[in-house]
């Protein structure tokens, strides 16, 4: 695998490579802490304070406040780590899939079911 620098972007698709991993390090580190229930409780008690403690940028803190998954991904969040954050907001992988695709959860589920019924899904 050669460097991704200069590669044609894949429409609507994130590729989590070194630059993104650097950009999102603090954000992902915070999300990693949510494996522990006491850290989830601490976040829920003071969301912004917890973000500040982990050194998130203003943009990242704002995206956390808005529960904006696409913005968090663009700011270096990795989907597996973000799942630990969005899980606390009651959003599972299908909820955040729908949010990113800009469609309702029902439409998102229907799209996946439709892919199961076609030959080229």
């Amino acid at each position: 695998m050669k460097s991704l620098a200069g590669k044609k972007p894949i429409p609507g698709t994130m590729v989590f490579e070194g630059r993104m991993a650097m950009k999102g390090y603090a954000l992902n580190k915070m999300c990693f802490s949510f494996n522990k229930a006491e850290n989830r409780d601490a976040f829920k008690a003071d969301e912004d304070g917890y973000c500040t403690k982990y050194g998130l940028t203003d943009e990242q803190r704002d995206a956390v406040k808005k529960r904006n998954v696409l913005a968090l991904l663009n700011l270096g969040g990795n989907i597996y780590y973000l799942a630990k954050l969005t899980g606390m907001f009651g959003l599972n992988m299908q909820d955040i899939g729908a949010q990113q695709a800009g469609i309702s959860l029902e439409e998102f589920k229907a799209k996946l079911l439709a892919a199961g019924e076609t030959k080229n899904g």
Binding site: G12, I96, Q100, A101, F108, G121
Partner: peptide
């Protein structure tokens, strides 16, 4: 499967 980005939900049966 694709979990992230606007194309979330992408699959490729073929």
């Amino acid at each position: 499967h694709q979990l992230d980005g606007e194309r979330a939900g992408h699959t490729n049966r073929e």
